[in-house]
Amino acid sequence: MIDTRTAPYAALLLRLSLGILFLAHLGLKLFVFTPAGTAQFFSSLGLPGGLAYVTMLWELVGAIALILGIYSRLVALAMIPVLLGAIFTVHGPAGFFFTNPNGGWEYPAFWIVGLLALALVGDGKYALKPSRRA
């Protein structure tokens, strides 16, 4: 049974934490690796370097939308391909544990589960623009 008194806070907490995580990873790409360095890394993986800029923009827009609660269900689903890309290009070959060199895929996979949970639970009443209910 769902506790309707606390469920809106759970959705808010989930939205905020997922959005902040995307901002943190965007910050790494912007301030630590630099956009040019990130593009070069994408190229080293056999991906188009320009995809790095698309990914950074995707992370920024998605993070803000999650934090503010703007169509959170849809945004949560739209953010999953970013993490799948990270799993299949970088973290998957490194093995399961995220403590492995190049980080394993356990953390991005868990992050995907959080996004799926948010898509299922919904925006919560503290969202700026709730998604339409099915």
Rank of each mutant, 00 (worst) to 15 (best):
L68H: 01
T55P: 03
V113R: 10
L13R: 14
K125N: 09
Y71K: 13
A86L: 00
G49T: 14
V75G: 11
L51D: 14
S131Q: 06
L115F: 10
A94I: 15
G69E: 09
V82Q: 04
L21M: 11
D123N: 14
Q40K: 12
T38C: 00
T55N: 12
G49F: 11
A7G: 06
A39C: 07
W111K: 04
A86M: 01
F88D: 05
F110A: 13
E59P: 08
A7K: 10
V54N: 02
S43C: 10
L14G: 12
F96V: 08
P108Q: 01
S44G: 15
V61P: 01
D123M: 14
I70L: 06
A94S: 15
L60Y: 08
L30P: 00
L51Y: 05
G50Q: 13
P93Y: 11
A39G: 14
I64S: 06
G27F: 00
V82Y: 03
N100T: 08
V82P: 01
T99G: 05
I70P: 01
P35L: 09
A7L: 14
E59V: 01
A127K: 09
V54S: 12
L60V: 03
A109M: 15
S17H: 02
P8F: 07
A36C: 12
L60R: 10
K29G: 05
K29A: 02
I80P: 03
A36W: 09
S44I: 05
R5W: 11
A76C: 06
P130F: 14
L16G: 03
L116F: 08
Q40T: 05
V113H: 07
L16Y: 14
M79F: 04
S72R: 05
V121M: 11
P35D: 08
N100L: 02
W105Q: 11
K29Q: 03
V121L: 15
F88Q: 14
L26S: 00
